[in-house]
């Protein structure tokens, strides 16, 4: 088998400060080139932290990262200085929920994209501008020549999102990380951006990791899904497997709570309670207090990661019973 584009092994991320937070507690995932993985989870589940680890965007002093994080075979945790700068934007790029924070308000869109291309590929300013125009055209910004000289505040929300995507893909990264890039957008604009990302990902053969809390969004873009809860991947598999045959009780609850196709007036099967605080690393199943299928052992030990098939894993004691006959 060829080397995966992304290989994360037993990742633990802990934040130290006024209080300790165990944000990621043993995440392993792989991504092949040209594949899209969605990480689905609620706030505090560790999905964004996992993503930021791949770009080393977490505050160095307060963060402890343990485990292996490799992109194209390169250990990201040991990068520093020039090699880290080459990694960011050259090999791996990221797009965010709020383009206003991702773009620099005092430079034009064209200047920002040209600068990134100049830095990563050593080309002239003029060549950088040509590439910036290409990128803006590629993300289908109307009248791109004019937008090269526009400042971020002069654009509408959807157009800023496109400009940020143009900046992210200008250097043809191998991996695109997307952190809820459509959450703040209106419905009719969200679908345009999702379709654009799907198209760019296929055209450039990029790997993409897409973090979202919206199952519908994950369905639109991904090949595989990983569901996170309390800093762990509780279930992963192909999009079809996870959506049509969810195995973990949390995934089932999340799908039921999503209301797609829920009959009017029908009572929702809500998951009771709230996610744990993560002041301590989990020593038992973190979902047990809210789980309808809880048994004694769930509150004593960390559930095993059960393999149900190629790329299909569930972290639940009940899944072990399902898998054993095979």
């Amino acid at each position: 088998m060829t080397q995966p584009l992304v290989d994360v092994r037993d990742l633990f991320v802990t934040f130290h400060g006024e209080r300790t937070v165990h944000a990621v507690n043993g995440v392993s995932l792989t991504l092949q080139a040209g594949e899209t993985l969605s990480i689905l989870g609620e706030s505090g589940s560790g999905k964004s932290v996992t993503l930021k680890t791949l770009l080393r965007l977490l505050p160095e002093k307060r963060t402890r990262i343990e485990g292996g994080v490799r992109v194209r075979g390169v250990d990201v945790t040991t990068l520093s200085g020039r090699s880290l700068a080459d990694h960011r934007g050259g090999v791996v790029s990221m797009i965010f929920q709020d383009p206003m924070l991702a773009l620099d308000p005092v430079y034009t869109i064209g200047e920002q994209i040209a600068e990134a291309v100049m830095r990563h590929e050593g080309v002239s300013r003029a060549a950088g501008r040509v590439r910036a125009l290409e990128a803006l055209t590629r993300v289908r910004i109307p009248s791109p020549e004019r937008r090269l000289n526009a400042y971020p505040h002069e654009m509408s929300g959807g157009m800023r999102q496109r400009a940020m995507i143009a900046l992210a893909i200008a250097c043809r990264p191998k991996l695109l990380l997307a952190d809820e890039p459509t959450t703040a957008l209106d419905a009719t604009v969200q679908i345009q951006i999702l379709l654009l990302l799907r198209e760019l990902q296929q055209e450039f053969g990029m790997g993409m990791i897409f973090v979202t809390h919206d199952i519908g969004v994950a369905v639109e873009v991904s090949d595989r899904i990983a569901v996170m809860y309390a800093g762990q991947i509780v279930e992963t598999g192909s999009l079809r497997e996870v959506i049509s045959a969810p195995q973990h009780p949390y995934t089932r609850g999340l799908l039921a709570a999503n209301l797609h196709g829920a009959a009017k007036g029908e009572r929702l099967s809500a998951i009771p309670g709230a996610p744990p605080a993560l002041n301590e690393a989990p020593t038992a199943c973190p979902f047990a207090p809210r789980c309808p299928s809880k048994i004694d052992v769930c509150e004593r030990i960390l559930p095993p990661v059960v393999r149900l098939g190629p790329e299909r894993y569930v972290r639940c004691v009940h899944a072990a019973a399902v898998a054993s006959p095979a």
């Binding site: 679908i191 379709l195 519908g216 999009l239 079809r240 959506i243 797609h260």
Partner: peptide, 12 residues
């Protein structure tokens, strides 16, 4: 514009 919930019927 609502995202599809069916992997076989994505928005085109």
């Amino acid at each position: 514009a609502m995202p599809s919930m069916d992997p076989d019927r994505r928005t085109m």
